[in-house]
Amino acid sequence: MKLIQGILQGKVRPLAKAISLVEDNLIDKEELIDQLYPHTGKAAIWGVTGPPGAGKSTLVDKLIDRERSQDHRVAVIAIDPSSPFTGGALLGDRLRMQRHSLDPQVFIRSMASRGHLGGVSWGCSDAIKILDAAGFNTIIIETIGVGQTEIEVVELADLVMLVLAPGMGDEIQAMKAGVMEIGDLFVINKKDLPGSEKLKAEIEYVLNLSSDNPEQLPPVILASAQKSEGIDELWKKLSTKYQQLVKSGYLSARRKERIKKELSRIILYKVHHLLDKKIALQDNIDNWAEQVYLKKDMPYTMVNKQINRFKKEMRLDDSKN
C-alpha cells in the first residue's frame, strides 16, 4: 500500500488520511494496521485528562514546547465529544496549540468521540499505532473531560496525567470517587487562583489514603500553563516517571495489559456483529416485541427460543464445514 510507505517516511498527508481511515472504521484499516504494527512500540504515549476548563489544551501546548526543545517529534490527538443527536462535533482544542501548526515535527489531530461502542478508544488506539509507526517520539492524547473515557485513556496511554484547577468544586468531588486512581501524575493548573494550595493538599491527602505504598505517591505539581509557570518541573517529573516505568518493567506490563484488553474488545465487537447478523436481530426485533407485547410469548421464553434457534444454526454451520 502506498499509504504505508508514506506513513513510514513520516509524510503528513498519508498519515492524516490513514487516521481518517481508522476513524471511519473502513475495512482497509485492518490490513493497514497489521502492516504498520511491526514498526510500533517506540513512542512514549501520554494521556492528559481532567475536567473541562482545567486548561488541558494550554498545558499540552506548553509540553509540546518542552518536547521540541529536545528535538522530539510530537503528535497530539485531541478528543472532543460528538453530539448524540446530530453526530456533529465542534473541535476547538487545537485552537490553543495552533502556533505549532507550521512546525513540520508537530502533528495535531482533532477527533470527535463519535459516541458509542468504545468508539473513542477504537479509532484512537489505531491512530496511536499509526503515529507510532510514523516515528513520533511522543504521542499525547487529550481526552474530552471527566467521564468514562478517562478510564479508557488508561488503556491507551503509558502514563496519565490528571489536570485539575481550583474553583471547580463539584467536579473534583466527583473525581475523588474513582478517577483519582488513574493518575500517574497530578497537575493543579491555574495556581494563581485562590484555593490551589488547598486543592493540592486535598489531593495529596486522598492519594495517601488510597495508597498501599506511601513512598511511591504520584507527584502533585502546581502550574500555570497560561503563564508558563511550573511547566519545567512538570515536564521533568514526567520524564522521570516515564523512566521509572521503563526500568521497573511496569511499562511492558501495562502494554501487555493494553493489548489484552484491546484484543478482547475487538473480538467481542466482531462477534457481536456476527451474532447480530446471524440472528437477524434488526429485521425481527419489531415482530418479537409485538409478540411479547400481546403476551403471546413471555419475555424469557422468547429470548431462549431465539438463542436455541441460533445454536441450532451454528451447529448446522459446523456440520457443513
Binding site: 476548563g53 494550554t58 501546548d61 465542534l90 476547538g92 485552537l95 490553543r96 497560561q226
Partner: peptide, 17 residues
C-alpha cells in the same frame, strides 16, 4: 511593539465553543 512583545509575551485566545 516587538520590544514589548519580547518582554510581555502574546495573548493566547481563549474561547469555549
Amino acid at each position: 511593539c516587538t520590544v514589548l512583545r519580547d518582554v510581555f509575551g502574546e495573548y493566547q485566545e481563549s474561547i469555549v465553543l
